[in-house]
Amino acid sequence: MSISGDSRRPSRTLRGAIIALSLAFVGTGLGTPAHAASEEPEIAKQPWSFSGVTGHYDRAQLQRGFQVYQEVCAACHGMRLLRYRNLGEPGGPEFSADAVKAIAAAVEVPDGPNDDGEMFERPGRPADAFRSPYANDNEARAVNGGALPPDLSVMAKARSIPTHAAFAPLGWARDIIAGYQEGGPDYLHALMTGYEDAPEGTEMVEGMHYNAAFAGHQIAMPSPLSDDLVDYTDGSPKTVDQYSRDVSAYLMWAAEPKLEERKRLGLRVLIYLIILAVLLYLTKRLIWSKLEH
């Protein structure tokens, strides 16, 4: 049984209808403007030394970022997954061994029990985990008006920006090709520079602060940075923008300490695979050339 005169092809009308239907489906499915765009603020991508195939951290930037963390963030935020020795390891801020010892020794670390069964405090060693500012979450909440300052160890991977929430055709493909993985630092930079006066008519909740980058715009953390707050010794500008870039880079390293090792190895793996693919293609062609196909 045939649905058209020509038994080999479907009727022109039917074909047309199917094409139109498919296009309509694709158009409506993918063209619907995303709701998220209105809820979540647009955040601009920033240039980072660690983006892209050959990306690596800027040691001086990581050291400055650690300084900002130590002098500002560490008052409320812990980084329990890091150890002081990490600060001297390759691919990080690469502080000297003596500097790492000094940073660790400046902290009193709980230890014990000793031979008498007593807990005691001693100066930190490089193998110790970063000391948290609070004994436990309850203390942290009590001190911060009910809000819990989150641990920052993997913060740079636990936040991102809605890269393709706004209508961006093939934005997802661009991100794959670019190897875009810097949504975390982009967000953190926007957050720390996003404090501003609430627009007219905004109902602010008691104890909250207006932030342009924060979802819902009401954040418990007061603006942590201000110009000239941290005394840089390498001549870098002492501005909120610079502080926030440096500490975002530092947090990215903290979340992804093996990034340099990963990207270096990745390049070798890709080159190896490309050469292998060419050789295998030639082999395959040679073998198949003996055969009509």
């Binding site: 190897g179 875009y180 993985q181 190895l265 990745g266 695979l273 693919a277 295998l280 082999t283």
Partner: peptide, 30 residues
């Protein structure tokens, strides 16, 4: 065997791209 090996190597290239340059792209920040 040769045809499969060639295709597998191309697939491994895509695989490696994600592992080394976009390892968290397919995941979720939360």
């Amino acid at each position: 065997t040769t045809k499969d090996m060639f295709a597998l190597t191309l697939f491994a290239l895509l695989f490696a791209w994600f592992v080394f340059y976009a390892p968290n792209y397919l995941g979720h920040a939360d």
